[in-house]
């Protein structure tokens, strides 16, 4: 009798395991929604942007349903660790500092960082030139690391979202802003608010701060998911889905060398 009960329990357990592998669970993806053109929110609340479409493409490739979960930028990593979602697809750069807390897939794009200032402001990008200048940037980004390391004499003004940085740059509360060049170009310079502004100085890059590019973020314990994400990323690069999305937003390949 006892033996039969045990057998039934074991059969049930095996069946449940089997079902699990047939019907894959939803993939919960943390996204931001305030970082055009990579992610933004339409007035009706739907999320749009390069990151969002990449997320959908990755999910489709993995044959799992995407559940997009919005999260403020500076709470991204804590929320991932707290299992509010399984991966972050939100233009998060792969850096050593972050790797102490989480793991990354391969990069899915890499674009340089640049300063933006008012046209004709004559801002010189050097230790002396930036001394005491108010430089706006988004808190918790690789750009915070870069500025604190390379230009410690500049006065950093930290914002919660990139949108707020552009807003305060437009009305003159800060002398310049420092961010990803694509985000600055599409999110600000090409808009009406940014018509009096321009890129200042060359591309800025520091390997330790900026890392090899933006990756999909997973918990350290989720190595299997990391491999699956890498496989899906390779697949959408190979079958042209990535390039199609890329072309929708940018005139050149942002995957980088």
């Amino acid at each position: 009798m006892k033996f039969r009960k045990l057998m039934m329990a074991m059969t049930a357990a095996v069946m449940m395991l089997g079902m699990g592998s047939v019907q894959a669970a939803d993939l919960r993806v943390g996204v931001e929604g305030a970082y055009p053109p990579f992610s933004w929110k339409e007035s009706d609340g739907t999320l749009k942007g390069f990151d969002i479409e990449i997320a959908e493409a990755i999910c489709a490739e993995m044959k799992r349903k995407c559940v997009l979960i919005e999260q403020d930028w500076d709470g991204m990593i804590p929320a991932l660790k707290a299992r509010k979602f399984d991966t972050i697809i939100a233009s998060m750069s792969i850096t050593e500092e972050r790797k102490k807390q989480v793991n990354f897939s391969d990069k899915y794009y890499n674009t340089p960082a640049k300063f933006v200032a008012r046209k004709g402001a004559g801002l010189e990008i050097s230790k002396e030139g930036l001394k005491g200048k108010r430089i706006g940037l988004q808190r918790g980004t690789t750009h915070q690391c870069f500025m604190e390391k390379m230009y410690p004499d500049a006065e950093l003004v930290l914002y919660g979202t990139q949108d707020e940085v552009f807003q305060d740059l437009a009305i003159g509360r800060i002398d310049a802003q420092f961010s990803d060049s694509i985000a600055a170009d599409d999110g600000f310079l090409k808009t009406d608010a940014g018509k009096d502004f321009e890129f200042t100085g060359a591309d800025q890059h520091d390997e330790a701060c900026h890392g090899p590019g933006a990756g999909m973020t997973v918990r350290k314990s989720d190595d299997e998911l990391r491999m699956e994400l890498n496989k899906a990323l390779k697949a959408i690069r190979a079958n042209g889905v990535y390039q199609k999305i890329n072309a929708k937003y940018f005139e050149f390949d942002i995957f980088g060398g």
Binding site: I77, R98, G140
Partner: peptide, 10 residues
């Protein structure tokens, strides 16, 4: 928030 932003330690 600065510390969290810099070192990702909430």
């Amino acid at each position: 928030r600065w510390l969290n932003g810099r070192y990702y330690l909430a």
